[in-house]
Design a binder for these strands. Structure first.
Lengths: 176, 176
DNA sequence: CGCACAAACTTAGAAAGCTAAGATAAAGCA
DNA sequence: TGCTTTATCTTAGCTTTCTAAGTTTGTGCG
Protein backbone atom coordinates (compact mmCIF):
# COMPACT_ATOMS: atom_id res chain seq x y z
CA UNK A 1 0.00 0.00 0.00
CA UNK A 2 1.33 3.34 -0.95
CA UNK A 3 -0.69 5.82 1.00
CA UNK A 4 -0.67 4.62 4.57
CA UNK A 5 -2.70 6.55 7.02
CA UNK A 6 -2.29 7.02 10.75
CA UNK A 7 -4.07 4.32 12.72
CA UNK A 8 -6.49 6.78 14.22
CA UNK A 9 -8.24 7.39 10.90
CA UNK A 10 -10.38 4.32 10.92
CA UNK A 11 -10.43 1.97 7.98
CA UNK A 12 -14.13 2.32 7.45
CA UNK A 13 -13.94 6.06 7.15
CA UNK A 14 -11.21 5.63 4.55
CA UNK A 15 -13.33 3.26 2.51
CA UNK A 16 -16.34 5.49 2.55
CA UNK A 17 -14.31 8.51 1.57
CA UNK A 18 -12.64 6.77 -1.30
CA UNK A 19 -15.71 5.11 -2.62
CA UNK A 20 -17.54 8.36 -2.57
CA UNK A 21 -15.24 9.96 -5.09
CA UNK A 22 -16.35 7.68 -7.91
CA UNK A 23 -19.93 8.33 -6.94
CA UNK A 24 -19.48 12.08 -6.92
CA UNK A 25 -17.91 12.03 -10.33
CA UNK A 26 -20.70 9.85 -11.68
CA UNK A 27 -23.36 12.15 -10.26
CA UNK A 28 -21.64 15.22 -11.62
CA UNK A 29 -21.37 13.66 -15.06
CA UNK A 30 -25.01 12.74 -15.09
CA UNK A 31 -26.13 16.15 -13.86
CA UNK A 32 -24.05 17.81 -16.56
CA UNK A 33 -25.45 15.58 -19.27
CA UNK A 34 -29.00 16.17 -18.18
CA UNK A 35 -28.54 19.88 -17.87
CA UNK A 36 -27.25 20.06 -21.41
CA UNK A 37 -29.82 17.67 -22.77
CA UNK A 38 -32.65 19.61 -21.22
CA UNK A 39 -31.50 22.70 -23.08
CA UNK A 40 -30.69 21.00 -26.37
CA UNK A 41 -34.15 19.48 -26.47
CA UNK A 42 -35.64 22.92 -26.92
CA UNK A 43 -33.84 23.01 -30.29
CA UNK A 44 -34.68 19.42 -31.16
CA UNK A 45 -31.11 18.18 -30.83
CA UNK A 46 -30.05 15.14 -28.85
CA UNK A 47 -26.96 14.84 -26.75
CA UNK A 48 -25.23 12.53 -29.20
CA UNK A 49 -25.83 14.95 -32.03
CA UNK A 50 -24.42 17.80 -30.00
CA UNK A 51 -21.19 15.92 -29.45
CA UNK A 52 -20.56 15.51 -33.15
CA UNK A 53 -21.89 18.88 -34.18
CA UNK A 54 -19.38 20.54 -31.88
CA UNK A 55 -16.52 18.67 -33.46
CA UNK A 56 -17.67 19.42 -37.00
CA UNK A 57 -18.10 23.12 -36.27
CA UNK A 58 -14.40 23.14 -35.45
CA UNK A 59 -13.34 20.88 -38.27
CA UNK A 60 -15.83 20.06 -41.00
CA UNK A 61 -15.39 17.07 -43.29
CA UNK A 62 -13.91 14.51 -40.89
CA UNK A 63 -14.30 10.79 -41.46
CA UNK A 64 -16.30 8.55 -39.14
CA UNK A 65 -13.13 7.23 -37.63
CA UNK A 66 -11.70 10.66 -37.01
CA UNK A 67 -14.96 11.79 -35.46
CA UNK A 68 -15.13 8.84 -33.13
CA UNK A 69 -11.55 9.45 -32.02
CA UNK A 70 -12.12 13.11 -31.34
CA UNK A 71 -15.32 12.32 -29.44
CA UNK A 72 -13.69 9.55 -27.41
CA UNK A 73 -16.38 7.19 -28.57
CA UNK A 74 -16.24 3.90 -30.46
CA UNK A 75 -17.03 3.67 -34.13
CA UNK A 76 -20.35 1.89 -33.77
CA UNK A 77 -21.51 4.66 -31.46
CA UNK A 78 -20.43 7.29 -33.92
CA UNK A 79 -21.98 5.30 -36.73
CA UNK A 80 -25.51 5.29 -35.38
CA UNK A 81 -25.30 8.92 -34.32
CA UNK A 82 -24.11 9.96 -37.79
CA UNK A 83 -26.85 7.99 -39.51
CA UNK A 84 -29.45 9.83 -37.50
CA UNK A 85 -27.80 13.14 -38.24
CA UNK A 86 -28.04 12.43 -41.96
CA UNK A 87 -31.73 11.57 -41.55
CA UNK A 88 -32.32 14.83 -39.75
CA UNK A 89 -30.52 16.80 -42.40
CA UNK A 90 -27.71 18.02 -40.17
CA UNK A 91 -24.88 16.48 -42.18
CA UNK A 92 -24.18 14.67 -45.41
CA UNK A 93 -21.69 11.83 -45.74
CA UNK A 94 -19.62 11.79 -48.88
CA UNK A 95 -16.77 9.93 -50.45
CA UNK A 96 -14.05 12.31 -51.45
CA UNK A 97 -11.07 12.05 -53.75
CA UNK A 98 -12.32 8.85 -55.30
CA UNK A 99 -11.93 6.94 -52.03
CA UNK A 100 -14.96 4.66 -51.75
CA UNK A 101 -14.14 3.59 -48.22
CA UNK A 102 -13.78 6.75 -46.20
CA UNK A 103 -17.00 8.62 -45.60
CA UNK A 104 -16.48 12.24 -44.71
CA UNK A 105 -19.17 14.11 -42.83
CA UNK A 106 -20.07 17.61 -43.94
CA UNK A 107 -22.40 19.98 -42.18
CA UNK A 108 -25.47 21.09 -44.07
CA UNK A 109 -26.59 24.73 -43.83
CA UNK A 110 -29.01 23.55 -41.14
CA UNK A 111 -26.12 21.96 -39.26
CA UNK A 112 -24.15 25.20 -39.40
CA UNK A 113 -27.11 27.30 -38.38
CA UNK A 114 -27.55 25.45 -35.12
CA UNK A 115 -24.19 26.61 -33.91
CA UNK A 116 -25.21 30.06 -32.81
CA UNK A 117 -28.26 28.74 -31.05
CA UNK A 118 -26.67 25.77 -29.30
CA UNK A 119 -23.34 27.09 -28.12
CA UNK A 120 -24.90 29.63 -25.76
CA UNK A 121 -26.90 26.84 -24.18
CA UNK A 122 -23.76 24.88 -23.37
CA UNK A 123 -22.09 27.97 -21.98
CA UNK A 124 -25.14 28.64 -19.85
CA UNK A 125 -25.06 25.12 -18.42
CA UNK A 126 -21.38 25.47 -17.63
CA UNK A 127 -21.81 28.86 -16.01
CA UNK A 128 -24.53 27.49 -13.78
CA UNK A 129 -22.43 24.47 -12.88
CA UNK A 130 -19.40 26.41 -11.70
CA UNK A 131 -21.28 29.11 -9.82
CA UNK A 132 -19.63 29.64 -6.48
CA UNK A 133 -16.29 28.12 -7.43
CA UNK A 134 -13.21 30.32 -7.51
CA UNK A 135 -10.79 30.38 -10.41
CA UNK A 136 -8.25 28.58 -8.24
CA UNK A 137 -10.67 25.86 -7.33
CA UNK A 138 -11.60 25.37 -10.95
CA UNK A 139 -7.96 25.09 -11.87
CA UNK A 140 -7.40 22.41 -9.27
CA UNK A 141 -10.59 20.64 -10.29
CA UNK A 142 -9.41 20.45 -13.89
CA UNK A 143 -5.98 19.27 -12.92
CA UNK A 144 -7.37 16.64 -10.57
CA UNK A 145 -9.74 15.30 -13.19
CA UNK A 146 -6.93 15.10 -15.71
CA UNK A 147 -4.77 13.20 -13.26
CA UNK A 148 -7.58 10.77 -12.50
CA UNK A 149 -8.30 10.18 -16.16
CA UNK A 150 -4.64 9.59 -16.92
CA UNK A 151 -4.19 7.24 -13.99
CA UNK A 152 -7.23 5.16 -14.84
CA UNK A 153 -6.51 4.98 -18.54
CA UNK A 154 -2.98 3.86 -17.84
CA UNK A 155 -4.35 1.24 -15.49
CA UNK A 156 -6.79 0.01 -18.09
CA UNK A 157 -4.09 -0.17 -20.73
CA UNK A 158 -1.90 -2.20 -18.38
CA UNK A 159 -4.78 -4.49 -17.52
CA UNK A 160 -5.48 -5.00 -21.21
CA UNK A 161 -1.83 -5.84 -21.77
CA UNK A 162 -2.17 -8.51 -19.09
CA UNK A 163 -5.13 -9.92 -20.99
CA UNK A 164 -7.97 -8.44 -18.91
CA UNK A 165 -10.89 -7.34 -21.04
CA UNK A 166 -14.15 -5.58 -20.59
CA UNK A 167 -16.94 -8.11 -20.48
CA UNK A 168 -18.29 -8.83 -23.95
CA UNK A 169 -21.68 -7.30 -24.58
CA UNK A 170 -22.63 -9.96 -27.02
CA UNK A 171 -22.98 -13.68 -26.45
CA UNK A 172 -19.63 -14.99 -27.50
CA UNK A 173 -19.98 -17.84 -29.96
CA UNK A 174 -20.89 -20.35 -27.33
CA UNK A 175 -20.28 -24.02 -26.71
CA UNK A 176 -19.42 -26.08 -29.74
CA UNK B 1 -20.97 37.34 -16.41
CA UNK B 2 -19.24 36.76 -13.20
CA UNK B 3 -15.72 35.82 -14.13
CA UNK B 4 -14.59 38.38 -16.64
CA UNK B 5 -11.25 37.90 -18.19
CA UNK B 6 -8.81 40.41 -19.58
CA UNK B 7 -9.53 41.22 -23.21
CA UNK B 8 -6.38 39.51 -24.38
CA UNK B 9 -7.76 36.08 -23.49
CA UNK B 10 -10.02 35.65 -26.46
CA UNK B 11 -13.64 34.60 -26.22
CA UNK B 12 -12.94 31.36 -27.99
CA UNK B 13 -10.50 30.31 -25.34
CA UNK B 14 -13.13 30.92 -22.69
CA UNK B 15 -15.67 28.77 -24.48
CA UNK B 16 -13.24 25.95 -24.96
CA UNK B 17 -12.23 26.06 -21.33
CA UNK B 18 -15.78 25.95 -20.11
CA UNK B 19 -16.94 23.28 -22.46
CA UNK B 20 -14.03 21.16 -21.52
CA UNK B 21 -15.12 20.82 -17.92
CA UNK B 22 -18.18 18.77 -18.80
CA UNK B 23 -16.03 16.63 -21.06
CA UNK B 24 -13.42 16.04 -18.37
CA UNK B 25 -16.05 14.99 -15.89
CA UNK B 26 -17.62 12.65 -18.42
CA UNK B 27 -14.28 11.06 -19.22
CA UNK B 28 -13.41 10.66 -15.57
CA UNK B 29 -16.76 9.04 -14.85
CA UNK B 30 -16.36 6.62 -17.68
CA UNK B 31 -12.79 5.75 -16.77
CA UNK B 32 -13.87 5.09 -13.19
CA UNK B 33 -16.75 2.89 -14.27
CA UNK B 34 -14.57 0.88 -16.60
CA UNK B 35 -11.83 0.49 -14.05
CA UNK B 36 -14.27 -0.90 -11.56
CA UNK B 37 -16.07 -3.04 -14.08
CA UNK B 38 -12.84 -4.56 -15.29
CA UNK B 39 -12.12 -5.70 -11.75
CA UNK B 40 -15.61 -6.82 -10.86
CA UNK B 41 -15.74 -9.00 -13.95
CA UNK B 42 -13.06 -11.22 -12.46
CA UNK B 43 -15.63 -12.10 -9.80
CA UNK B 44 -18.52 -12.37 -12.24
CA UNK B 45 -20.28 -9.27 -10.96
CA UNK B 46 -21.56 -6.44 -13.14
CA UNK B 47 -21.40 -2.79 -12.33
CA UNK B 48 -25.12 -2.54 -11.67
CA UNK B 49 -24.97 -5.41 -9.24
CA UNK B 50 -22.08 -3.80 -7.40
CA UNK B 51 -24.08 -0.63 -6.86
CA UNK B 52 -26.88 -2.47 -5.09
CA UNK B 53 -24.68 -4.95 -3.28
CA UNK B 54 -22.84 -2.09 -1.66
CA UNK B 55 -26.04 -0.57 -0.39
CA UNK B 56 -27.35 -3.87 0.92
CA UNK B 57 -24.11 -4.64 2.74
CA UNK B 58 -24.71 -1.46 4.70
CA UNK B 59 -28.42 -1.97 5.14
CA UNK B 60 -29.95 -5.31 4.25
CA UNK B 61 -33.67 -5.72 3.62
CA UNK B 62 -34.46 -2.46 1.83
CA UNK B 63 -37.39 -2.17 -0.56
CA UNK B 64 -36.94 -1.54 -4.27
CA UNK B 65 -37.94 2.06 -3.83
CA UNK B 66 -35.51 2.61 -0.99
CA UNK B 67 -32.74 1.00 -2.98
CA UNK B 68 -33.38 3.14 -6.02
CA UNK B 69 -33.34 6.26 -3.86
CA UNK B 70 -30.08 5.37 -2.17
CA UNK B 71 -28.49 4.50 -5.50
CA UNK B 72 -29.73 7.68 -7.18
CA UNK B 73 -31.33 5.59 -9.86
CA UNK B 74 -34.92 5.30 -11.04
CA UNK B 75 -37.14 2.40 -10.06
CA UNK B 76 -37.17 0.71 -13.45
CA UNK B 77 -33.39 0.69 -13.39
CA UNK B 78 -33.35 -0.81 -9.94
CA UNK B 79 -36.04 -3.23 -10.99
CA UNK B 80 -34.11 -4.88 -13.80
CA UNK B 81 -30.91 -4.97 -11.78
CA UNK B 82 -32.67 -6.61 -8.85
CA UNK B 83 -34.33 -9.20 -11.07
CA UNK B 84 -30.95 -10.22 -12.41
CA UNK B 85 -29.53 -10.37 -8.92
CA UNK B 86 -32.28 -12.76 -7.90
CA UNK B 87 -31.54 -14.93 -10.94
CA UNK B 88 -27.88 -15.03 -9.98
CA UNK B 89 -28.66 -15.95 -6.42
CA UNK B 90 -27.25 -12.79 -4.85
CA UNK B 91 -30.47 -11.67 -3.19
CA UNK B 92 -34.01 -12.80 -2.51
CA UNK B 93 -37.03 -10.52 -2.64
CA UNK B 94 -39.63 -11.07 -0.01
CA UNK B 95 -42.85 -9.58 1.22
CA UNK B 96 -42.62 -8.87 4.90
CA UNK B 97 -45.23 -8.20 7.56
CA UNK B 98 -48.03 -9.37 5.31
CA UNK B 99 -47.51 -6.47 2.92
CA UNK B 100 -47.98 -7.81 -0.60
CA UNK B 101 -46.82 -4.61 -2.23
CA UNK B 102 -43.41 -3.83 -0.79
CA UNK B 103 -40.70 -6.24 -1.84
CA UNK B 104 -37.69 -6.21 0.43
CA UNK B 105 -34.35 -7.39 -0.87
CA UNK B 106 -32.25 -9.65 1.33
CA UNK B 107 -28.72 -10.77 0.62
CA UNK B 108 -28.15 -14.48 0.24
CA UNK B 109 -25.04 -16.05 1.78
CA UNK B 110 -23.49 -15.76 -1.66
CA UNK B 111 -24.34 -12.06 -1.71
CA UNK B 112 -22.71 -11.54 1.67
CA UNK B 113 -19.63 -13.54 0.74
CA UNK B 114 -18.81 -11.29 -2.16
CA UNK B 115 -18.24 -8.38 0.14
CA UNK B 116 -14.75 -9.26 1.22
CA UNK B 117 -13.68 -10.00 -2.29
CA UNK B 118 -15.22 -6.98 -3.99
CA UNK B 119 -14.55 -4.14 -1.59
CA UNK B 120 -10.77 -4.38 -1.98
CA UNK B 121 -11.21 -4.11 -5.74
CA UNK B 122 -13.06 -0.83 -5.41
CA UNK B 123 -10.48 0.50 -3.02
CA UNK B 124 -7.76 -0.50 -5.43
CA UNK B 125 -9.44 1.36 -8.28
CA UNK B 126 -9.80 4.43 -6.13
CA UNK B 127 -6.21 4.32 -4.97
CA UNK B 128 -5.01 4.14 -8.52
CA UNK B 129 -7.27 6.99 -9.56
CA UNK B 130 -6.03 9.46 -6.96
CA UNK B 131 -2.36 8.64 -7.23
CA UNK B 132 -0.39 11.85 -7.38
CA UNK B 133 -3.09 14.05 -5.87
CA UNK B 134 -2.49 15.68 -2.51
CA UNK B 135 -4.97 15.57 0.34
CA UNK B 136 -5.70 19.25 -0.21
CA UNK B 137 -6.38 18.77 -3.86
CA UNK B 138 -8.70 15.88 -3.14
CA UNK B 139 -10.57 17.98 -0.64
CA UNK B 140 -11.07 20.73 -3.18
CA UNK B 141 -12.01 18.19 -5.83
CA UNK B 142 -14.74 16.78 -3.62
CA UNK B 143 -16.03 20.19 -2.69
CA UNK B 144 -16.05 21.35 -6.29
CA UNK B 145 -17.93 18.28 -7.43
CA UNK B 146 -20.48 18.75 -4.70
CA UNK B 147 -20.99 22.37 -5.68
CA UNK B 148 -21.43 21.42 -9.33
CA UNK B 149 -23.92 18.69 -8.51
CA UNK B 150 -25.92 21.00 -6.27
CA UNK B 151 -25.94 23.79 -8.82
CA UNK B 152 -27.04 21.56 -11.66
CA UNK B 153 -29.70 19.75 -9.68
CA UNK B 154 -31.14 23.04 -8.52
CA UNK B 155 -31.15 24.21 -12.11
CA UNK B 156 -32.92 21.08 -13.27
CA UNK B 157 -35.51 21.40 -10.51
CA UNK B 158 -36.17 25.00 -11.52
CA UNK B 159 -36.43 24.03 -15.17
CA UNK B 160 -38.88 21.29 -14.28
CA UNK B 161 -40.94 23.79 -12.33
CA UNK B 162 -41.11 25.91 -15.48
CA UNK B 163 -42.40 22.88 -17.36
CA UNK B 164 -39.17 21.81 -19.09
CA UNK B 165 -38.80 18.06 -19.21
CA UNK B 166 -36.26 15.56 -20.29
CA UNK B 167 -37.14 14.21 -23.71
CA UNK B 168 -39.42 11.18 -23.47
CA UNK B 169 -37.67 7.93 -24.24
CA UNK B 170 -40.82 6.36 -25.52
CA UNK B 171 -43.02 7.43 -28.39
CA UNK B 172 -45.70 9.44 -26.70
CA UNK B 173 -49.14 8.27 -27.71
CA UNK B 174 -49.04 9.93 -31.07
CA UNK B 175 -51.53 11.58 -33.39
CA UNK B 176 -55.16 10.59 -32.89
C1' DC C 1 -68.06 -0.51 4.87
C1' DG C 2 -66.89 1.30 0.39
C1' DC C 3 -64.57 4.24 -2.58
C1' DA C 4 -60.95 7.50 -3.82
C1' DC C 5 -56.29 8.43 -3.59
C1' DA C 6 -51.57 7.19 -2.84
C1' DA C 7 -47.69 3.97 -2.77
C1' DA C 8 -45.02 0.40 -4.78
C1' DC C 9 -43.78 -2.39 -8.27
C1' DT C 10 -43.97 -3.58 -13.52
C1' DT C 11 -44.00 -3.09 -18.41
C1' DA C 12 -42.96 -0.65 -22.78
C1' DG C 13 -39.89 1.33 -25.52
C1' DA C 14 -36.29 4.50 -26.43
C1' DA C 15 -31.08 6.52 -26.33
C1' DA C 16 -26.40 5.97 -25.93
C1' DG C 17 -22.87 3.27 -25.09
C1' DC C 18 -19.99 -0.94 -25.65
C1' DT C 19 -17.56 -5.57 -27.62
C1' DA C 20 -17.15 -8.72 -31.30
C1' DA C 21 -17.29 -9.92 -35.77
C1' DG C 22 -18.49 -9.09 -40.37
C1' DA C 23 -17.88 -6.79 -45.33
C1' DT C 24 -15.47 -4.14 -48.61
C1' DA C 25 -11.93 -1.18 -50.42
C1' DA C 26 -7.06 0.40 -50.46
C1' DA C 27 -2.24 -0.37 -50.05
C1' DG C 28 1.87 -2.96 -50.08
C1' DC C 29 4.78 -6.34 -51.53
C1' DA C 30 6.60 -10.33 -54.10
C1' DT D 1 -0.02 -8.29 -61.73
C1' DG D 2 -2.02 -10.86 -58.00
C1' DC D 3 -2.38 -11.87 -53.24
C1' DT D 4 -2.14 -10.57 -48.45
C1' DT D 5 -2.66 -7.29 -45.01
C1' DT D 6 -4.64 -3.19 -43.18
C1' DA D 7 -8.20 0.52 -42.92
C1' DT D 8 -12.75 1.84 -42.67
C1' DC D 9 -17.30 1.36 -42.19
C1' DT D 10 -21.34 -1.96 -40.81
C1' DT D 11 -24.07 -5.22 -38.37
C1' DA D 12 -25.38 -7.93 -34.31
C1' DG D 13 -26.59 -7.95 -29.91
C1' DC D 14 -25.96 -6.78 -25.32
C1' DT D 15 -26.10 -3.31 -20.79
C1' DT D 16 -27.52 0.52 -18.38
C1' DT D 17 -30.17 4.18 -17.98
C1' DC D 18 -34.17 6.84 -18.68
C1' DT D 19 -39.47 8.60 -19.24
C1' DA D 20 -44.15 7.34 -19.47
C1' DA D 21 -47.77 4.62 -18.48
C1' DG D 22 -49.66 0.69 -16.62
C1' DT D 23 -51.25 -2.73 -12.43
C1' DT D 24 -51.96 -3.96 -7.93
C1' DT D 25 -52.29 -3.18 -3.02
C1' DG D 26 -52.85 -0.18 1.20
C1' DT D 27 -54.90 3.74 3.56
C1' DG D 28 -57.96 7.11 4.94
C1' DC D 29 -62.20 9.36 5.03
C1' DG D 30 -67.20 9.95 4.82
Amino acid sequence: MKYERPADSANEATDVQEERLARLIRLAARAFNRSLQLRLTTEGVTFGQWIFLRILWQEDGLSQRELSERANLTEPTAHTALLRMVEQGLITRENVKGNKRRQHAFLTPRGWELRERLEPLAIEANDIAVEGLSADELKILRRALNVIITNLERDEAEAAARGMRMPPTRITTSVL
